[in-house]
């Protein structure tokens, strides 16, 4: 399968293109939206794009189990990142009464 055909019928290129577009949308969310929660969701989207690419490469290398183990670790780190990131956003909201990233340029009081 080459070219458009691979994209339409789930070849490796199709998964990589989906991952790239997902990453670009996440990046756009981080850069264009000002609410910190939206930026956080954009970061999660970019992380998921990386996971899609990782598991797509693993499948086309004959179902490599190592990649699924790595995916497990990535998801553990993502859960930590979500917990601490959201706690930081709540803490900032308590001090500043805003979740706009322009208004919270510094973490200090």
């Amino acid at each position: 399968m080459t070219g458009m055909d691979a994209i339409l019928h789930g070849g490796l290129q199709g998964y990589l293109v989906v991952a790239l577009l997902l990453f670009a949308i996440g990046l756009a969310a981080v850069l264009l939206r000002r609410t910190m929660l939206m930026q956080f969701m954009g970061v999660e989207l970019m992380l998921n794009a990386a996971n899609v690419a990782l598991l797509a490469f693993a499948r086309f290398r004959g179902g490599d189990l190592q990649a699924t183990v790595f995916y497990l670790f990535i998801i553990a780190v993502a859960a930590c990142e979500a917990a601490v990131g959201l706690a930081l956003i709540i803490g900032l909201y308590r001090h500043r009464d805003t979740t706009d990233s322009d208004r919270t340029a510094s973490l200090k009081q």
Partner: peptide, 28 residues
């Protein structure tokens, strides 16, 4: 916006043109 679009377009172009990706896709 331009940066995100350029990244997406450049990445897609790279993936579609890459011989290595094509080889991996056909082998697996």
């Amino acid at each position: 916006l331009l940066l995100a679009l350029a990244l997406a377009a450049g990445g897609v172009k790279l993936v579609m043109a890459s011989k290595g990706v094509q080889m991996l896709a056909s082998r697996g």
